[in-house]
Design a protein around this nucleic acid. Structure first.
Lengths: 267, 267
DNA sequence: CGGCGCGGCTGGTATATACCAACTCGATTC
DNA sequence: GAATCGAGTTGGTATATACCAGCCGCGCCG
């Protein structure tokens, strides 16, 4: 319904003849089913959050088997139009939230600006010994003490991401005693005088594995977006690593870039 | 095999007890199948580009049905470990290419730096009348003449993205007469004196629709990443809009961010 | 009135089978 | 030697069916 949804549809590709031909040939059942619901969602006939009828009912109504129904539903899920909750049903996805991973605004602030309600829950906080991966990426000895904080973040009551935060104990002693359901950036600045100077961000599509899927209340293997953020201080020391697992249909990443300089070449 | 692949596996989530319990309960056939191939790929026993046996052979070897095999293969595909070519077979995915959408380097340059071979093919070039979407985003009248360029870009011979470039004819007259299989940024700077000053980038996971899927040689509905880039000049005029459709398993987005400023709050 | 249990509903996993459509590659033909 | 044809192979779509596992609500029981 929002502009974001319609962008892919408004694209005009090069060979319209090809497209026209495709209308002549037989369209698979699952695709007609998909098109039907995609249209209803995009026109707003099905409001976000609406629950779809049970798979068995859909199969009967459309005179196709449940297997075919599930093929179509999975497709709509991949497209981000609907989502499912394990053994509870299929629902129309809410509009995506815009998120700028490099901006000077945090999650809560950014969501609030969009007129939506952000929520944060601390799932766990503990002190552990650095694994191989952590020692490499945090720049500490293997087995050195680190804090591990796991949080669930939601928009309008729907969980959209789980994150795991890794911080060296030596750098922020006593961190776990502070309230952790708010901005880590602010906390580290206020209590430890640590200012984020630079961040290295990685993103890639993935499938949600068991633990993050369970935390988000989704079926394992559903598409997701992995986003990691390494935060460096003024002296280029890594002070925090944040690993985020997003529902793939919840996010619209928006970044603004400074332009290429005159002297440099592109491409 | 690369570090990027193993990150999700090295994550240590909060409730290891839960994880332990999961080993006791029955693991579905499709998951064991998945685990088997995921392990072979991650250890390098299956090299990138390797073709998997036909689905029917896999079904027989593992004593499961082809439906179940396909469920597992689709899962591995969502995870980015394997990909398929329409009616040709399943293959092990090559390592992802790192890509910084906001850096001062173009596609070819960036790929080359990673020791890989970039390729660009112009699929089509034409002049059309601006659609509603184009007039809105390019900032021109509806029906105004615009150039539409469609290109296919590959890494090591494998198509990784299709892009569609929209440029106002008024701004770059005669553009289509220049060679278009190279840097558009350079071309616009050299021939028209247009310097990229700022870019607005949007990204989100999606499913590849028919046209981009066909161009990439993949099955429609496979996961993809949609990336659009609006390029503004010195006077904040939109001079170019680039819409890119990536194979989701080909890309590892890396961006470097300037830190949050001292006076601002994060979250 | 509150907690517990059970049954029904939902999606999750799996079998067995069939036919279709596109690609491959070798053989045949011009 | 190049173009064409065709058979076989591969994935794509679809039916019909069965049982399992977790969620939910109703009703029973304390």
């Amino acid at each position: 319904m929002t502009e974001a949804w319609t962008i892919p549809q408004t694209i005009r590709w090069s060979i319209p003849d090809e497209t026209r031909k495709s209308w002549d040939r037989k369209i698979p059942y699952y695709m007609r089913f998909r098109d039907h619901f995609a249209a209803m969602i995009e026109t707003g006939a099905l409001a976000p959050g609406t629950r779809l009828p049970p798979e068995r009912a859909l199969a009967e109504d459309f005179s196709i088997t449940r297997v075919t129904v599930r093929q179509a539903l999975t497709r709509l899920e991949t497209e981000g139009l609907i989502f499912r909750e394990e053994r509870r049903g299929w629902f129309v996805s809410p509009p995506r939230v815009r998120y700028d991973p490099i901006a000077n605004t945090g999650f809560t602030e950014s969501i609030t600006e969009q007129g939506r309600v952000a929520g944060t829950t601390v799932l766990s906080k503990q002190q552990v010994a650095a694994s191989q991966w952590e020692s490499t990426h945090l720049g500490c000895a293997l087995g050195a003490p680190i804090y591990l904080i796991s949080r669930l973040r939601s928009v309008d009551g729907r969980a959209v991401l789980v994150e795991q935060i890794h911080i060296k104990v030596a750098r922020c002693p006593g961190l776990l005693d502070y309230p952790l359901d708010q901005s880590m950036t602010d906390l580290m600045a206020d209590k430890y005088g640590i200012i984020e100077h630079r961040a290295q961000i990685n993103m890639r599509p993935t499938a949600l594995s068991e633990i993050p899927a369970k935390a988000l209340g989704v079926t394992v293997g559903t598409p997701g977006l992995y986003l990691s953020r390494a935060i460096l201080d003024q002296s280029d020391q890594v002070v925090e690593i944040d690993q985020e697992f997003w529902r793939h249909d919840a996010i619209d990443i928006c970044v603004s870039a400074a332009g290429r300089h005159e002297s440099e070449s592109g491409d």
